[in-house]
Nucleic acid binder design. Structure first.
Lengths: 112, 112
DNA sequence: AATTCTGTCAACCATTTGGTTGAATGATTT
DNA sequence: AAATCATTCAACCAAATGGTTGACAGAATT
């Protein structure tokens, strides 16, 4: 397994985990402090089971860590992998300005 | 439809578009300059059709713009939406350092 | 010891995803 | 006008997603 594949796997997981508003909301909530699974689920109009699955996805992406304390599962934000994602995005910072017009430039050049 | 929903829709689309290594590779390629669909597809071990669909996903997320020039479709990177994603991630910058230990802190406090 | 509470596991379901192949469309070349 | 080239459209498929409900397991309460 090439080393690059593992990095890609992680990016796949992280971006996928973030590509859902429920999961993003869970992360926001966890930014305010640790919480039990039940606490996390309460505000959402869906079953505890559904939220439990979302938490699993976040955990697999490394964005949430869990500690079992008796019958309660305490979840905590682990924002580290977000840095990886932002690092990837950062490569494109240089293109955020007016490179939107590459296409226009291409077409103009071509039609001359 | 509340205004916040639209922002979430866009984040859903952008993060989902990025959650696939083929699409990320397409973006990397487009960072070096515009390209036709066929050119984009060539390096990948999959059908042109498959790549065409990936481009559609990128286009829907606003990450790629297309201009039809005769029978050729010229694709260009549009990195703008990445800024939106990075902005979202940026909220968590404060948590990248040592907040990994929130959980440990919680447990420690609790067990005292 | 019985009950209740927290959370997972398992099965199921509809929809989406990521890929395929084959046919159609439109522009270019011969 | 015929053939070829660049792409999309349409149908299909297996696997993954996001949700449900019901049963189970382990801890805490009574």
């Amino acid at each position: 397994m090439p080393a690059a594949a593992r990095a890609d796997d992680r990016l796949d997981q992280v971006f996928h985990a973030l590509a859902n508003r429920t999961r993003r909301a869970l992360l926001r909530r966890l930014a305010t402090g640790t919480a039990k699974v039940g606490d996390l689920a309460a505000p959402f109009g869906m079953s505890l089971n559904a939220v439990s699955k979302h938490i699993l996805v976040l955990e697999d992406a490394g964005l949430v860590r869990r500690t079992v304390l008796g019958r309660e599962h305490i979840c905590a934000l682990n924002a580290g992998p977000m840095a990886t994602a932002e690092q990837w995005l950062d490569f494109y910072s240089g293109y955020w300005n007016n490179k939107l017009d590459r296409l226009a430039a291409f077409v103009e050049k071509d039609s001359k």
